[in-house]
Design a protein around this nucleic acid. Sequence first.
DNA 1: GCCGAAATTCACCATGCGGTGAATAATGCG
DNA 2: CGCATTATTCACCGCATGGTGAATTTCGGC
Lengths: 206, 206
Amino acid sequence: MIGRRPGRSTTRDELVEAARHEFAERGVEGATTRRIAARAGVDPGMIRHHFGSKAGLWQAVLELPFDPFRLAAPVRHAPPEEVGRVLVSTMLDLWEGPLGVGFRAMLRSAVQDPGYADGIRQFLLSRAIMPVVRRVAPESRDGEPDPERLAQRASLAASQVIGLIMARYFLRLEPLASADHEWVVAHVAPTVQHYLTGPIVDDRNE
Amino acid sequence: MIGRRPGRSTTRDELVEAARHEFAERGVEGATTRRIAARAGVDPGMIRHHFGSKAGLWQAVLELPFDPFRLAAPVRHAPPEEVGRVLVSTMLDLWEGPLGVGFRAMLRSAVQDPGYADGIRQFLLSRAIMPVVRRVAPESRDGEPDPERLAQRASLAASQVIGLIMARYFLRLEPLASADHEWVVAHVAPTVQHYLTGPIVDDRNE
DNA sequence: GCCGAAATTCACCATGCGGTGAATAATGCG
DNA sequence: CGCATTATTCACCGCATGGTGAATTTCGGC
């Protein structure tokens, strides 16, 4: 039956929701507009009508999770000696909250396409990790920051956090995948804390 | 020009080599038979002739890297107190050696498709990590092994190793992505070593 | 030197993709 | 009420995909 439906339309929101899941499950290239539309129970043409194209849909999906400053507030205000615990705990909350499916879509696409990986890396460093490192690293409090050292801490901490996410949410390695937050924080946070604020041995400069 | 070429044919090997790279760069779904054939400089029909189908090519690509026992020999014979260093060092060698491109294809596909993820997880645990953990974990030497504790160590160590690989080879987080092996081992190995042989605090059982 | 097997290319096919343009029905503002 | 706007479906298009069948050439054992 052609033509507009009676009542207020929720199609746009339902498309975004369906796309969020499809992108998360199959990646941005693997997801198809036809599947997304079918999941939302509407005609594929609605994607063009509401978003112009598949890329427009992808942008709409990314809009919600991209409020990192508000989301990472707990990390930005944690005392330096507890930043590891708070970071890991916040990460778990975010990935298991309603926005997690959007994050999964982002990471999946980053692995799929090097172009996306560039964007994610930039976002991760400039918005998520570096601000934290710059604030809590011991070098920062001793006057001279030494950006190289800060970048080392950032990439090392990120490697553990990303590994946690990969192991827990993608590869589903047990028992890490099913362990409760307390257990994960208790075991992984010390590593992150060490990378962020512990002594860093630099064998190249000595 | 139709018909067989003079001389001995290297097409099959060239197809596998081209496929290895294409799969690594785009994932098993993202790679196309036409691109692979073009990269190898042959007709797409050769894939059917030599491997039957795209899936057959994928299997051929996986054959080489699947000799984990020989590859991980250094890890299997490392003294327990150095297993972290040896594991990380061997991992770097493998991922940057000729087989690395095959590993990248595997991990990329694991993230792309949950079905592949199951296979990779099984392989990782049963063939790569668990044997090492079972050998070096302090519990193993005190009589009763406690499989749950061993699995905890395995998943935690795997999370750091996978995170290292993701950060270095996929997201290319600097300086971790360009650092030499010594530096990476010096900074990451202690974490892995701790997960494998250090004290594990289990807050749930006390 | 013959002849079956292997190697290679070519011309297609059905399918699914993202996207386009038009037709139709309900909404909501004046 | 009247009418522009919006929402929705439909019938297509061009393209790329993986795959098929046949034709053609060389290789290698006898």
